[in-house]
Design a protein around this nucleic acid. Structure first.
Length: 459
RNA sequence: GGCGCGGUAGCCAAGUGGUAAGGCCGAGGUCUGCAAAACCUCUAUGCGUCGGUUCAAUUCCGACCCGCGCCUCCA
């Protein structure tokens, strides 16, 4: 069964297949803007895309997938924040892209094959803008900015079906103040390709045929996608919030510039909600990976929790779901240990339902359900290598959880030694009393046949 | 106002025109002196409400109620 995804453009399931003669599947995933630590809502999208990347590799072969994910390292926020910290833009964004990479690694997300940056592709962006201007799809304004002329593209808005939206009166837009540079635009829906330098941009400007300035947001993805994957790609993904205007505008730029279809398929993952609402600073319901680590949550539990909901459905995140995830991972860990011990061999067919679910529009909840159905039947006839292949697809690692780093107080260590000695001497009354003392000190003592370990007591 | 998505057990969450996967929690049990872990068993006559179609609807249709997202630079 081929991998099928719900295509945002045609609004139906479409099978994935490479369209180029070299058989390489071309996959572009909109990456982060690096101005702060990414939050777990951002990571939902990246984890889903990592799952997709893994499935593509399993389907077409590792050498037949080219995964590009950009870093947006110049925009209003990166410029403003770097200036607030009195740091050079590149220095500032490197800090946050490094942090992003570390978090991705913790979540076991494979690095993309190419990770282009906006500032590293200024020339490519200028080239595209120049073509658009030459073809009459763009115009410059008095201040030296360049805008895309939405009216020049007859079928603008296919992806978000903007025409249906704007035919109606009384949209929320009508009551909203337009953006600062709105009066420069010929039409409210035109968008910036090149933004003329403004004093508040500081040193962050590049020379161009239109004078000093910087690229608009959307053009970077069009340029980087074209450079690294070609004019027509097989799949373009991102969060639903990018559907409009970002992806709509990418289509407009790329297709008007290249005269070729941009992406054959569009896939958008839904938002992670917290407390039933989209995460946002103002609501104070925003979590980063570090916030969760501080609560003792393992990144792998977060990955599992993020996969526990259907990617195209809003997922309401709760700390409870992380607990459930930790327990589920423990069950899988125990199952794999049993498999390894029994040297179980079998065919891969038992996991077919798991892959069938994943191939069916990344139905991760159904896939996990199918996985546990196998686990619950027991290890007989289950192939260990096949099980590991499932884990690879899901990107789940089952290393023993790292005990929270906490120094064991000498007093507790001493109590534990005494208790172990009492237990060896079969003085169980004393051993039980010592266990209570250790617990009172906030630790729990876990016995094994050949020794013991100490862990901070769970609440 | 428009566009889109959703309402399934205490919580999370799949799914199907023919009688409800899975995870967590909870209960009982096996095992280990105890504890922990592991393992076993049990846990929705019902799928937002009201109508309709049908031999049969949670699944299709209609109306309604409730929640969420997007509507110009947010994954």
């Amino acid at each position: 069964m081929p991998i099928q995804l719900f295509d945002s453009l045609t609004r139906q399931l479409q099978p994935l297949a490479p369209s180029h003669a070299d058989g390489v599947f071309r996959f572009y995933n909109c990456g982060p803007t690096v101005y702060a630590p990414a939050h777990i809502g951002n990571f939902r999208t990246f984890v889903v895309n990592d799952l997709l990347r893994r499935l593509l590799e399993l389907e077409f072969g590792p050498a037949k997938v080219k995964h590009v994910r950009n870093i947006t390292d110049v925009d209003d926020k990166t410029i403003r924040r770097s200036q607030e910290e009195k740091r050079a833009l590149g220095d500032f964004t490197k800090q946050w892209s490094d942090k992003f990479h570390a978090d991705c690694a913790a979540l076991n997300c494979l690095p993309p094959h190419v990770e282009p940056t906006a500032t590293g592709h200024i020339a490519e962006q200028i080239d595209m803008i120049a073509v658009l201007e030459r073809k009459g799809h763009a115009y410059r304004t008095a201040d030296g900015s360049v805008y895309f002329k939405v009216g020049s593209m007859p079928d603008y808005g296919r992806l978000s079906r903007i025409k249906e939206r704007e035919l109606q009166l009384g949209s929320a837009l009508s009551g909203k103040p337009q953006t600062a540079d709105a009066d420069e635009k010929e039409d409210g829906s035109d968008f910036a390709l090149w933004k003329a330098h403004k004093p508040e941009d500081g040193a962050n400007a590049w020379e161009s045929p239109w004078g000093r300035g910087r690229p608009g947001w959307h053009i970077e993805c069009s340029a980087m996608s074209k450079k690294h994957l070609g004019e027509t790609i097989d799949l373009h993904t991102g969060g639903v919030d990018l559907l409009f205007p970002h992806h709509e505008n990418e289509i407009a730029q790329s297709e008007c510039c290249n005269g070729a279809p941009f992406s054959r398929l569009w896939y958008h993952s839904e938002h992670l909600l917290v407390d039933g609402k989209k995460m946002s600073k103002s609501l104070g319901n925003l979590y980063t990976l570090d916030d969760l680590k501080a609560k003792g949550v393992s990144p792998m539990a977060l990955r599992y929790a993020l996969l526990a909901g259907h990617p195209r459905k809003q997922l309401n995140f709760t700390l409870d779901s992380l607990h459930a995830a930790e327990k589920a991972l423990a069950t899988l860990r125990a199952f794999r240990a049993t498999l390894a011990a029994s040297g179980s061999r079998g065919d891969e067919a038992v996991f077919a339902p798991v892959f069938a679910a994943l191939h069916d529009d990344l139905n991760t909840p159904a896939a996990l359900g199918a996985l546990f159905t196998v686990v619950n039947r027991g290890p007989a006839g289950v192939d260990a290598a096949a099980f590991d292949r499932v884990l690879f697809a899901l990107g789940l690692t089952l290393d023993a959880p790292v005990a929270p780093k906490a120094d064991i107080p000498a007093a507790v260590a001493a109590l534990a030694e005494k208790r172990w000695a009492a237990k060896q001497a079969k003085d169980f009354a004393a051993a039980d009393a010592l266990r209570k003392e250790i617990a009172a000190a906030g630790w729990s003592m876990l016995d094994r046949k050949d020794g013991y370990s100490l862990e901070p007591a769970k609440k």
